[in-house]
Amino acid sequence: MMKREHMMIVAHEPIAENIYALTLTGPLVHEMNKPGQFVHIKITSQADPLLRRPLSLCQIDKETSQCTIIYRKEGIGTTLLSEKRPGETVDVLGPLGNGFPLDAVKAGQTALIVGGGIGVPPLYELSKRLVKKDVNVIHVLGFQNKDVMFYKNEFAKLGETHVATVDGSYGTKGLVTDVIAECAISFDVLYACGPKPMLKALEQAFPNKEVYLSLEERMGCGIGACFACVCRVPNSETAYKKVCSDGPVFKAGEVIL
């Protein structure tokens, strides 16, 4: 259930260029159930920056009551967050949203897991859970370049892992879709998180497959009240889904990308 809690930072370090891993502890971890869910973090108790920041959960460890979030330092909020040290607390509202459906794939089947840039983190907990239920996982991770790449080794420990970089500084030069085509990867279910053009390309590339896409949108409240993060539904002028509370994971075709 969604709660608000001041969680303690136990570890916080850069893991790639402007990419940080933040590990938090607190009872709230026991409410975090599904990979793909996110938390809404208020970085300072001051009025500026005012809004919470929606950040996806990368790892959930109930045994140690710890969760890890990976984020990119980009604006004032994430820059302030990056300055927080272990021992300090952050104001966390969550877990929010519906995660990836784990039941969509059975033991012995293959899940293709595709991540782009800062969309990669929630896929790590997803992959761990799928491996635990004996699903064969194949990862395709896309980054701008080698310097902003992260978690390649962590994913590699779980299963076959391919990397694409836009500038070719690591792995295949190009996009994740190039890798999938080049390696002729076959799979039963596809899970993806990343920039909208990537999600669109995947949706179009596999019209007959079961595809689950995790969306990103600017949010206000994060709980479904403010209507900031809505997206359109096919064949309707007024129907909508909210990324925060109906998503952020949608089955391909459920919403218009």
Partner: peptide, 9 residues
Amino acid sequence: TPRVAETPS
């Protein structure tokens, strides 16, 4: 969308 944008306070 985008329908919201943060501003100072």
